[in-house]
């Protein structure tokens, strides 16, 4: 009898142990996931200016161009030297602002890691709007990526939980909340055209147009070279300066002493993804030469 009691005790304790282990690993998986979220997605190697921290949906929306529900289809983890990831997303629903694309490209730095492949999120988006990237390229604004679970929103970082309130902590409430906030940005505000049919049209949208001689070239990355210039003739504006280096397309293979017509915005960036940096071998060179000769 005693042996049976001891045996029963042993079996009971083993069962309890197994139960503890099992429950510790599997109990409330979603809650565990929430508990394991990062405190913040602020990059640890960047500096934060006191007073500029985002603290609410109103703060996030002030920097957003659109808010959408989208599913992460693919994360290219090897992108950008292990420093950042390129994500491809399928848009399910745009709930605020204008986002005319069914597929998005997002860039997330390494310190995020809070967006998971195959999952759906509510995303506060800002168009990248830089000539070297496709027009459907976006960034996530601040910690503005929310997990949707049974219509309830959870921050992808613990900090982001504090930015939603009883007024907008479900998807339905968020739609209602955002519907009262005017949209300030549309896709028409994306100033980067793929190309212009005519040089004259490109001239009109440019802040500065000049003929420059290349004085230095440093290969920065696969997208841009760092270019030093001498201004031979300035046709429009004053955005270009010989003191400043410019990030111009590496595909142009610019070399020292070569001359180019450049059509740029106020930051010295090309006004079109194609055809705004014109060298002697480019198809619109003669058109540009003729047009600018009359300026």
């Amino acid at each position: 009898m005693k042996k049976l009691t001891i045996l029963a005790c042993i079996i009971l304790i083993i069962v309890v142990n197994v139960f503890i282990l099992f429950s510790a690993e599997n109990h409330n998986t979603f809650q565990n996931m929430l508990d394991n979220r990062p405190e913040s997605v602020n990059p640890p190697n960047a500096m934060i200016i006191p007073g500029y921290e985002t603290e609410s949906v109103d703060d996030i929306i002030a920097y957003s161009h659109a808010v959408a529900v989208a599913k992460v289809e693919k994360i290219e983890e090897d992108s950008y030297d292990g420093i950042g990831y390129e994500l491809k997303l399928a848009v399910d629903e745009v709930i605020w602002g204008e986002c005319p694309y069914s597929e998005l490209i997002l860039f997330e730095n390494l310190y995020g890691g809070h967006i998971k492949e195959g999952e759906e999120y509510l995303l506060f988006l800002r168009a990248l709007n830089v000539y070297a990237y496709p027009e459907n390229s976006y960034n996530i604004v601040g910690n503005g990526a929310y997990i949707i679970e049974d219509n309830t929103l959870y921050g992808t970082s613990k900090e982001a939980d504090n930015w939603i309130s009883d007024q907008n902590n479900t998807l339905d409430k968020m739609k209602d909340y955002l519907s009262k906030i005017p949209v300030a940005y549309t896709s028409n505000d994306n100033s980067i055209a793929d190309s212009y049919d005519e040089v004259s049209a490109m001239y009109e949208v440019s802040d500065s147009v000049a003929k420059v001689k290349i004085t230095s070239v440093f290969e920065e990355n696969a997208i841009v070279d760092v270019i030093g210039i001498e201004i031979i003739e300035n046709y429009k504006g004053s955005a270009l300066s010989e003191e400043v280096k410019y990030l111009w397309p590496s595909e142009k293979n610019m070399a020292v002493e070569e001359e180019y017509f450049v059509f740029v915005d106020a930051d010295g960036l090309p006004v079109a993804r194609e055809g705004a940096i014109i060298g002697a071998n480019d198809s619109n060179f003669n058109e540009a030469k003729e047009f600018l000769a009359n300026k």
Binding site: M47, Y80, N109, G144, V224
Partner: peptide
């Protein structure tokens, strides 16, 4: 905006930095 051409992982989080 220019820095994005060197490091496009400068996200909106880092806009404020």
């Amino acid at each position: 905006q220019a820095m994005l051409l060197i490091d496009n992982t400068i996200t909106a989080t880092t806009y404020l930095l």
